[in-house]
Design a protein around this nucleic acid. Structure first.
Length: 578
RNA sequence: GGGCUCGUGGCUUAGCCAGGAUAUAGCGUCGGGCUUCUAACCCGAAUGCCGGGGGUUCGAAUCCUCCCGGGCCCGCCA
């Protein structure tokens, strides 16, 4: 409802300002949500800049408010009042805004908060190399990407999520070679079995350089289509991906498609891209390798697109991949680690050179260990599985303490939802451009206002509703439009909660627009916070007045929907009880 | 050496892109609240030269510049 309210405010104030001879488009009016008003505007400051110091902002603000036409204000039914405080024009919502918000939630249910965007987005995330299990650095990518996909979907976009599988590069050649040299432990998770032999192989390479010749031979064989080598690569990759998929599933991270790099070798797209880059006249030979000059976009160094031995590189295949994706969508978004900053810029530049669509890139900074950065190759990492298992264990201990009488199944179920949720929330709530250091103590210490806090608010709402006989109270339809008088909800905690619920679509809009999922994570926390305030101060089941009770139940029901929808956007399960 | 990025109370962190009303929240510390819908909750207190200097502006955590510190990157790895 907030978005509609904002539009009305912009219209009313825009008209008033323009009637005074200013020339401002209503979209240009800047707003802020503050504690002083439901919508505060600095319009007076903006206009002062236009007229260069003729009047002070307080006078301008006063003039604008004075110029608001009565009819204009009357037709803006979501505006309650406009108040003047010095240079600030503070606008407050009407009762209708509050009533309409609850009507919308109850009518919308799981669709409440949906945005109106259209268009197809191809989102790529995680795409960790299949040389071992996901580690705690990878899951920042997975959680960021998955949450982003959920938020973009909520905003209305048609989102397809892809995992780009590097099944052909040097690292996979090493994996494949390792599989022939060392036995795989079939009793453990397949990605763990792969990393064990991969680490050993890398130790061999460090000791004996001649191993590299074997590796290079394998790479060459794959690119020239040797069936047997391709099969052995595929087998190793399949094992790793099977293990990785299991981890992703546990985390509620969804991919629609796993796209293999090798397909762009097989299809010849890679060589096609190289030819087309040559045709731009921007390529040249450099010690036998083919490089492309991207200095027009400020890249000092050239980009290698074909090795001197004639094989392709990750970058080349990535170009082919993006060229393949482009016609299938309106936008491409890649979620990548900070180590890809330079290369992704070069990729964008090269794609531009080819005249194609360019992906938007979301970069997240590294997660390192106290002793330094993680490395799959060296076997120095904390696996996502270990972290998740310990988080679930910690959650189990909590639930055991709080609800010992519940069934084993219930406890395990809640422990999984809370453990996974806490992990996802702790990672997503932090803005991605902060680099972090992983440490077990803080990871396992459930943040007080993290996922469990939000889940708990949802469980509290569910609990109240579970003690209500909806049919007896409200008829067979349960909660339907207009069944209660929402104007009875006048307690400060009630009004604050409704206003927060009304912000849902706006917050999705911001988060989707900036590709910043963490801002929505904060909204979910604020929502839970306001619900807990309401829960603490406003009784529902034991109010005497039947009409008031109905209205409050409707608010609880609406809160539950908003909380559930918010959690869903974060990929966190919403338990009915915990 | 060059480029990108981050630096906000003891710790973690929002706000910075689009500069304005007492800088956000959590942890930790101290103090309070369960005969009232699950206390994974709520209330109160203390704690900040917003890394440092300079600049732009009526006004800077926010913009510019230099410096310091952490992270990442700097062609035939991905």
């Amino acid at each position: 409802m907030f978005i509609e309210f904002k539009n009305q405010v912009q219209k009313v104030l825009g008209e008033a300002a323009n009637s005074l001879g200013y020339d401002i488009r209503k979209e240009e009016i800047s707003f802020e949500v503050s504690e002083h008003a439901d919508l505060a505007t600095r319009l007076a400051f903006q206009l002062m800049a236009v007229k260069k110091g003729k009047e002070n902002p307080a006078q301008i603000a006063q003039a604008i408010v004075g110029a608001v036409r009565k009819e204009s204000l009357e037709s803006a039914d979501l505006i309650g009042k406009i108040a003047l405080l010095g240079p600030y024009i503070n606008v407050f919502v009407s009762e209708k805004y509050l009533v309409q918000t609850l009507e919308n939630v109850i009518a919308g249910k799981e669709n409440y908060g949906n945005g109106k965007h259209t268009g197809k987005i191809l989102l790529e995330h995680t795409s960790a190399n299949p040389n071992g299990p996901l580690h705690v650095g990878h899951i920042r990518n997975a959680i960021l990407g998955d949450t982003l996909s959920r938020i973009l979907k909520k905003a209305g976009y048609d989102v397809e999520v892809q995992y780009y599988v590097n099944d052909i590069g040097r690292q996979i050649a090493v994996v494949s070679w390792a599989c022939t040299r060392y036995p795989l432990n079939m009793d453990i998770k397949p990605d763990n079995a792969i990393v064990d032999v991969y680490v050993k192989a890398n130790q061999d390479i460090a000791k004996d350089e001649s191993v590299n010749e074997h590796i290079e031979k394998l790479m060459k064989k794959v690119e020239t289509g040797d069936k047997e080598t391709i099969e052995s690569f595929k087998h190793a990759v399949d094992m790793a991906i099977a293990g990785i998929s299991e981890t992703l599933r546990l985390m509620n991270v969804n991919h629609d498609k796993f796209v293999r790099e090798s397909q762009f070798i097989e299809s010849g797209d890679v060589w096609n891209v190289i030819d087309r880059l040559k045709a731009t006249g921007k390529t040249k030979d450099s010690d036998g390798a083919l490089v492309v000059d991207l200095s027009d976009d400020g890249f000092e160094k050239t980009l290698v697109i074909r090795r001197s031995n004639g094989t392709s590189l990750y970058t080349t295949r990535d170009l082919a991949y993006h060229e393949w994706k482009a016609p299938q969508c309106d936008r491409m978004i890649d979620v990548l680690g900070a180590d890809h900053k330079l290369i992704s810029g070069q990729l964008q530049s090269a794609l531009k050179l080819l005249g194609g669509k360019v992906p938007e890139v979301v970069i997240f900074e590294f997660v390192s260990l106290p002793e330094g950065s993680m490395s799959t190759r060296r076997g120095v990492f904390i696996s996502a599985d270990d972290l998740l298992a310990q988080m679930i264990e910690a959650a189990y201990a909590e639930i055991e303490k709080r609800r010992p009488e519940e069934s084993e199944e219930f406890k395990k179920d809640v422990a999984r939802m809370v453990g996974i949720g806490a992990t996802r929330y702790d990672i997503i709530k932090v803005s991605p451009e902060k680099s972090t250091v992983f440490d077990w103590k803080t990871a396992l210490d459930f943040e007080k206002q993290g996922a469990p806090f939000i889940q708990y608010a949802h469980a509290r709402a569910s609990n109240i509703l579970s003690k209500t006989d909806e049919e007896a109270a409200f008829g067979a339809g349960g909660f339907v439009s207009g069944f209660a008088d929402y104007t009875l909800l006048t307690e400060p905690a009630e009004v604050a909660l409704i206003k927060k619920i009304a912000m849902f679509e706006q917050r999705i809009e911001e988060s989707a627009g900036n590709l910043k999922p963490h801002t929505f994570a904060i909204y979910a926390r604020e929502l839970a916070d306001d619900f807990n305030q309401f829960y603490r101060y406003v009784p529902v089941l034991n109010v005497e007045d039947a009409e008031l009770k109905k209205s409050r139940l409707a608010l609880v029901f609406s809160s539950k929907i908003a909380l559930a929808n918010a959690l869903s956007c974060l990929g966190i399960d919403a338990p009915e009880s915990m």
